[in-house]
Each structure stands twice: as C-alpha cells, then as structure tokens.
C-alpha cells in the first residue's frame, strides 16, 4: 500500500506530516517511510541514523571509436542532443542523455557500449523493528531526478505500508512519485497560493486517477478558501494543523513533535487511521 504525502507548493509542511505520520503509525504496525524528494531529501533530519547506501546508475553509451563508422545515425536519432557525430569522432554529453537506449539500436556497427553512470543513491535506515526509512538522493547538478525516484519506489514496492514524501511541484518528478499510488494526501495552507497550487495538483491527480485527501496546515480558524474548494470537488479534509510559532520552532530545529508531545502523537495517530481507511477504500 503506497500513500503519497504531497503539496503543489513547497514549504506547506508535507515533510512534517509524512515524518510524524510514519512515526506514529510505526508504533502499531510495520511502516516504510520513503523520501522521493530526491533533489532536497529532508526526512532523514527527523530520524538521524547511519544509512546503508546503494549507488543508482543509469545506462549511457560509450563510443568504441575503432568500430565507429561515423555514419551519424546515433546523433540524428538522439532527440536530446546527447550525441554529436563529427567526421572522425563522436562526442557524448552525459548531462543531456536520458538513457532511453535508442542509440544502441540505431548503431549499425555495434560501436556503442552500454556503461553505467552514477546519478544518485538510495539510503536505507532500519530505525526500529517497525520503521524503515528509504531516502533517494540525487547527485548535485544532475537532472535525472526520475531515475532516482524510480529506484526508491522499486525498492519499497512490496512493503505492506509505505508513506512517501513527494517532491514539490506537479511536473515529472511528482508524476513519477505518485503514479499508481493508492492515495495522495495534499498538504496545503489557507492562502491564495495554497489554493492555486492545490487546484493544480488536484487536476494532475485526476489525470493520473489517484484519489485525493487534504490536510490544511497553518490554519488560523478561517480556512473557508480551502474548505470551499474541497466541498466543491468532494475532497475530504482529514486534519487541520494550527498556525503555531512553538510548533514551527520545534519542527525547524529537527524535532519530531509527535515524539515530544503526547497530544500531537494522538492527533497524528487519528490522521493515520483516517488515511489508512481512505487508502483501503473503507470510507
């Protein structure tokens, strides 16, 4: 069962929700927390540990100049501009390569060899008997975000309950993270920004056919802007997290509020029950 915690907009508190949710649910059952925000993975801050690391590679071409006919077929095929065929040599631009594998197929002389290229790593921490954290981390400056996200999702795909922290935005990395998930919980805030980004994310999730639930963060009691939208689109609001300077302080310092404070532990536990019920389709 894969449940994604996301937000169209960054900084609305999705990592707060994912970390606390993973923690409280793991007191009752086996939970895997997966950080798919691979450009800026932050779940690990709340769960310090020394992880086992596994390098993630993609396949890229290496030119065997002795065999190359310099016919230009690979350069003409590559729609990403990663291969340039000159009169007597072939240039390869690794940052432009999307690892589609097409060049190997068009080469008439078997002059391209498949070699691995490092794009990032997946870190695994067994935090307790019932809580495992899996973090994807993209190599700095690399653009192959989805390859690392794919590796994280592949690793956790058979786990019973997975809580995934999604990357911000609604483009390729988000889609790679949320495709085929059982439920996506969107964390938003009661501002025009929050509403705008929530509506964009909901549109994308409708295309992907992933069910949606909403959590309102930084609520100050007047959340009509989000409530109106949710009732119009029949989206359940599962929790409201109040705007609270102390809470913000704790969270920013890397404390997990539900570990520190029994009242918050209870609130996230209730949220967890609701989310699991929605994901199972019991609601």
């Amino acid at each position: 069962m894969q449940i994604v915690i996301a937000s169209g907009k960054g900084g609305t508190g999705k990592t707060t929700v994912a970390s606390n949710l993973g923690f409280v649910l793991s007191l009752k059952q086996k939970i895997t927390l997966a950080d798919c925000d691979v450009e800026e993975p932050n779940l690990g801050i709340f769960f310090p540990c020394s992880p086992e690391c596994r390098d993630i590679h993609v396949i890229i071409p290496q030119v065997l100049e002795d065999q190359c006919l310099h016919c230009g077929a690979c350069g003409e095929f590559c729609r990403f501009g990663a291969l340039t065929v000159l009169k007597d040599k072939v240039l390869f631009f690794p940052q432009l390569c999307h690892s589609c594998g097409g060049c190997f197929r068009v080469c008439p002389a078997e002059a391209l060899e498949k070699v691995p290229a490092l794009v990032g790593e997946v870190q695994t921490c067994h935090l307790t008997d019932s809580l495992t954290l899996v973090t994807g981390r993209l190599k700095e400056g690399d653009v192959r975000t989805t390859a690392v996200i794919g590796a994280v999702r592949e690793q956790v795909k058979d786990e019973p309950v997975v809580i995934i922290d999604a990357p911000p935005g609604t483009a390729c990395p988000f889609i790679e993270t949320v495709d085929d998930a059982l439920l996506c919980v969107l964390v938003t805030e009661p501002t025009p920004f929050g509403l705008h980004d929530l509506s964009v994310a909901v549109d994308v999730l409708q295309v992907l056919k992933v069910p949606v639930a909403v959590v309102i963060n930084r609520s100050d009691g007047n959340d009509s802007i989000i409530e109106g939208y949710c009732s119009e689109h029949s989206l359940p609001i599962l929790m409201k997290i109040p705007l609270d300077f102390t809470l913000l302080k704790k969270q920013n310092a890397g404390f997990l509020i539900s570990r520190e404070d029994p009242e918050w532990s209870l609130r996230f536990s209730e949220l967890g029950d609701k989310i699991l019920a929605h994901a199972r389709g019991d609601v």
Binding site: G75, R79, F80, G81, L83, T84, F93, L96
Partner: peptide, 14 residues
C-alpha cells in the same frame, strides 16, 4: 528542440 540544440546544430554544420 527541447534541449541539446547546441550539439545538434554542430552536427548540422559538420
């Protein structure tokens, strides 16, 4: 093109 247009143009010139 969406990306890598510089190298593509070089191949065109060659």
């Amino acid at each position: 093109g969406s990306g890598g247009v510089g190298p593509m143009a070089v191949q065109f010139l060659v």
